[in-house]
Design a protein around this nucleic acid. Sequence first.
DNA 1: GACAATACCAAGCAAGCGCTTGGTTTGTAA
DNA 2: TTACAAACCAAGCGCTTGCTTGGTATTGTC
Lengths: 203, 203
Amino acid sequence: MSPNQILQSLIAEQLVSDPASARGRLLNEAARLFRDKGYERTTVRDLAAAVGIQSGSLFHHFRTKEEILKAVMVETIRLNTALMQAAADRAESPRDKLKALVRAELESINGQTGEAMAVLVYEWRSLSEASRAQVLELREIYEGLWLSVLESLSDTGQLQAEPFVVRRMLTGALSWTVTWYKPERGGLTLDGLTEQVMAMMGL
Amino acid sequence: MSPNQILQSLIAEQLVSDPASARGRLLNEAARLFRDKGYERTTVRDLAAAVGIQSGSLFHHFRTKEEILKAVMVETIRLNTALMQAAADRAESPRDKLKALVRAELESINGQTGEAMAVLVYEWRSLSEASRAQVLELREIYEGLWLSVLESLSDTGQLQAEPFVVRRMLTGALSWTVTWYKPERGGLTLDGLTEQVMAMMGL
DNA sequence: GACAATACCAAGCAAGCGCTTGGTTTGTAA
DNA sequence: TTACAAACCAAGCGCTTGCTTGGTATTGTC
């Protein structure tokens, strides 16, 4: 299954919004604005202007501004969990599964869904307690995927450090790439970056 | 020189504020509030209440709210540059220098200056263009320290990946520890964490 | 072509924001 | 004691914020 096919099937299941729909376009613009200016600095007027409607009209689609943030996060995790699952399934050995996960997450962070991924990492403080719990629940599924692969690597002796520590180091290292990795200028490709990450772990 | 002696000499040089002074106490509280709630969600009334004065009185010490954020960042970088320098000087081999830097940065992130370090990493979007340039200038000195150590490791063949890529991966991985590392519960000490980082790099 | 339901607009409210103002207290030194 | 600056208070201004309201197009369905 290609990334696009995965997206399509999630849309069909109504788990993520069609980017072509009004809701989907808003969420995309919201992700971009939230990443660029931060959630708090982004006003409902900014959001409305980005999709060409009046600020009040937003509240026909979402009850509160925070609900928009939550929707961005929830849909992003859903999509990425599916993408990671597919990437891991495509590989055979634990080592190749990990490499596939690293590559897929780098692609999520630095590709089209990058805005939303950055929001997911850096804006969770802006969520209410209730929303945070909801997002965290989905995130645990996502993290479980990583942990099972890292644990199988640990079982075969290819990984010395504790899987959960390694995952957290990777989370930080990979998500931080969004602040500096610019594929266009400089010769480092996503594959090259993936290789460096694997080499850093002696794999 | 102990960390405390370094702090004292920086205070004497007026490069950082005495934590016992009115200004120093405000900056400490500001760092804590900015980390916990984010810069935008922290109001001048919050800041004033934290040090027991009226909100208007803040503007006797700082011209704007943003100036408080800038001061937190500038003083934090100054202190940490000195701390890293001292840590690196204490070690002999490039490998030990790197380990000392990792250990020192983990301590900065997860110790007393942790609040301010988190602000430095996660709130730079809230800075104005002008302040950002100023902070970036100081940050380059700090990063230069790391790079020189990593380059010497690269020269001796102990490091395969590009130094600047490694540094950026480390920046992400180490600063991310602030979101999950809790020394009190769970047996992982700062030394243990440092070891895991070094092991992750095959060092 | 009637009729909802959906999507949107125009206007503005209440609350909270950063910051200013004019005046008072406190600390210090001659 | 006087003089003066630094530190602070009480009040509130002007603006922006998230969100509401009442009404109007637009769309889909039979």
